[in-house]
């Protein structure tokens, strides 16, 4: 059951976006999301759609990977759409429920619903392009570097990145262990599959206790092993893989800024 968890479903590649600096990519993704929430007119959305498709094309990531990220969003999308469709007040009424006249669809409601769905879909696509083209390690390194200036206000940037690295490293180890414990308990008659939600949740308790104990033991061992290799936090630490910003990143940033200006101009104009 833990096999399905894939954090950072990185797809290896050699595209323009793959080669960009992780820090720039993270910041530009944030920028992308901000623009997405600033616009509301249909024309601006059309331009934004074209831009998003261009990003996907540029990343050379097979579209099915991006669509896979949308699947778990299905219910939220439908829920948001329905809510906006019926709840938005407006002047032009398109349809009124014959049994209950408060339930009606207005033109404004329809537009809001469509734009809302698009906003959520682009949000997922934008962040997927980031995580699909950046290895988890680069991502954590990038986050560490971005958070570095905030150390003045006591943000433990190195510690956050180190915790993320170790968490990613231990996902396969712990999932293997869970499977082992599950099999051992199933061999002795434990039942994880039948019964209602409550019953199944209860069956997980004897699974979680040994898993937690072993995780703590592993953490203890790992701490000693890290100590033995002279780990002493982020101070005076160097990195083998240096992050380098290239002309590529400059172009990407300029392009993004230009695009933002254009979209916001269109938004203001329409």
């Amino acid at each position: 059951m833990f096999k399905d968890i894939t954090i950072g479903q990185y797809v290896e590649g050699n595209s323009f976006i793959h080669k960009m600096d992780a820090r720039v990519k993270i910041l530009l993704s944030l920028f992308y999301i901000i623009i997405l929430f600033l616009i509301s007119s249909p024309v601006a959305y059309a331009v934004f759609t074209a831009f998003t498709l261009f990003l996907v094309y540029l990343s050379k990531v097979p579209p099915k990977f991006i669509l896979r990220g949308l699947k778990p969003m299905m219910y939220i999308l439908v829920f948001t759409a329905v809510l906006n469709l019926f709840m938005t007040q407006g002047s032009t009424v398109l349809w009124v429920c014959p049994f209950w006249s408060t339930l009606k669809i207005t033109k404004e409601g329809l537009t809001t619903a469509v734009l809302m769905i698009l906003r959520l879909v682009y949000l997922v696509i934008g962040t997927s392009v980031l995580t699909l083209t950046t290895s988890p390690l680069m991502l954590t390194d990038g986050i560490e570097k971005i958070l570095k200036p905030f150390e003045i206000i006591k943000v433990p940037s190195h510690e956050i990145a180190m915790m993320m690295t170790i968490a990613i490293r231990f996902i396969p180890t712990l999932s293997e262990e869970t499977e082992k414990i599950m099999k051992a308990q199933m061999a002795r008659g434990a039942d994880f599959e039948s019964g209602n939600v409550l019953k199944r949740a209860k069956a997980m308790i004897p699974l979680l206790v040994p898993l937690f104990i072993s995780a703590f033991r592993r953490a203890d061992d790992l701490a000693v092993a890290m100590d033995s290799r002279c780990y002493h936090g982020g101070k005076n630490r160097t990195r083998m893989k240096q992050m380098k910003m290239t002309v590529r990143d400059l172009w990407a940033t300029l392009f993004m800024v230009g695009f933002a200006a254009a979209v916001i101009f269109i938004q203001k104009l329409m």
Partner: peptide
């Protein structure tokens, strides 16, 4: 399993020299 820190072999080997502040090319 309990003494490997990084999720990639070469980063694992680089861990100790990184802690010691060795320059990147030397690592």
């Amino acid at each position: 399993d309990n003494q490997i820190v990084a999720a990639v072999v070469e980063d694992e080997v680089a861990f100790a020299p990184e802690n010691l502040g060795v320059p990147p090319e030397e690592i």
